[in-house]
Nucleic acid binder design. Structure first.
Length: 330
DNA sequence: ACTGTGTAGGGAAAAGCCCGGG
DNA sequence: GCCCGGGCTTTTCCCTACACAG
């Protein structure tokens, strides 16, 4: 067993387009999506709630697999300093993360503070014979090692501990009549039916989604794994899709390719331009059936709906006063 | 309190590209 | 050489939460 996340080893293709500007952009994206791998990058982390839902055998399996991963990396010549997490694993202590945001790089200040307190640690996995400045690019020497020895199945695209624990937990709730496949960890057999009815042969075994394309399934699974292979070098924000990174970079460069012919206002996204153009046309597609008010944007429509329902989901932690809009709470 | 509008990220279908096999 | 199908990548689309001004 070897639970590295395979998509971490994806390197965006470099196109020799002949167009210097395009090549610069490609190189830019390539450079910025390459990051040094840390143990935490390849480890799977759980929240306290997720950890609590696991029974003793699953926790033991988790520890065993993580420790085995470490020994695999060491045997392949990678140096791993004993981080806090590894020590916890070896001592058999409880392991969960205190929050999601900082692990995803959303809150650098908190991340830094927590690092100091050793609540998490970031130790690069580096090959012994590699220079210290080695990046992902020249560390791409591992082959696709995601075969599950236990079942013999190819775990290439389902390589998370979570999934492993689910698929090996023995929860065979449904069996497909069409193909005889056991639908472990699924609460309903309905999603699997798409495989036979809609030609979507690539089904996610963690949720209801099925796809016609294996690549789309792998991309979808990033939602579950939290993997974000495309990172912006300017702000560190990471994305699941290359096009999302490319779009995001425009917020730094100021590039606004979509221009309104009427007022000249420019937008980064075409959809935003189209929505803006509705304001010129006076088109209000969202109409409230209670008050008769019409809105050009769905968010305005939903805000209006809350007024009728009295829903106020944004409460002040200090005085308890509730608001229908988050901006009003602020 | 509420509306109008802009910003920007998320998920995925569609289109396009590439490549191996017949 | 050509076609075809499958895998993969990129483009495009729509949706959404949130911010902010008025």
């Amino acid at each position: 067993m070897f639970f590295l996340q395979p998509q971490l080893f994806l390197v965006p293709a470099v196109s020799a387009s002949g167009n210097p500007e395009e090549d610069r952009e490609t190189e830019f994206l390539r450079m910025h999506s390459l990051k040094k791998v840390t143990f935490e990058d390849v480890a799977i982390d759980f929240t306290q709630e997720e950890w609590a839902m696991m029974d003793t055998s699953k926790r033991k399996l988790y520890r065993d697999v993580m420790l085995e991963n470490i020994s695999h990396l060491v045997s392949l010549g990678y140096q791993i300093s004993k981080s806090y997490i590894i020590l916890q694993l070896e001592q058999g202590k409880e392991l969960w993360r205190e929050g999601r945001e900082f692990l995803q790089g959303q809150n650098p200040d908190m991340e830094s503070a927590l690092k100091k307190k050793h609540m998490i640690s970031m130790h690069p996995i580096i090959r012994k014979d590699a220079p210290t400045s080695m990046t992902m690019e020249n560390s791409l020497i591992l082959e696709d090692p995601f075969e599950c020895n236990d079942s013999g199945e190819d775990c290439t695209h389902s390589s998370t501990i979570t999934q492993y624990l689910l698929t090996h937990s023995g929860n065979k709730l449904y069996v497909s009549k069409q193909c005889g496949k056991s639908l472990s960890n699924q609460l309903s057999p309905k999603p699997h039916k798409q495989v036979h009815t809609k030609g979507k042969s690539y089904q996610c075994n963690l949720c209801e989604k099925a796809y016609t394309n294996g690549f789309h399934l792998r991309r979808h699974k990033m939602i579950h794994t939290g993997e974000r292979p495309y990172a912006c070098h300017l702000c560190g924000k990471a994305f699941t899709q290359c096009s999302h990174l490319r779009r995001h970079v425009k917020t730094h460069t100021g590039e606004r390719p979509y221009k309104c012919h009427q007022c000249g206002k420019a937008f980064i996204q075409s959809f935003n331009l189209r929505r803006h153009e509705r304001t010129h046309l006076g088109r209000k597609c969202y109409e409230c059936d209670k008050s008769g008010k019409a809105f050009s944007q769905s968010s305005g429509f939903r805000g209006n709906k809350r007024i009728h329902t009295g829903e106020k989901p944004h409460a002040c932690l200090l005085c308890g006063k509730a608001f229908s809009l988050s901006s009003d709470l602020r």
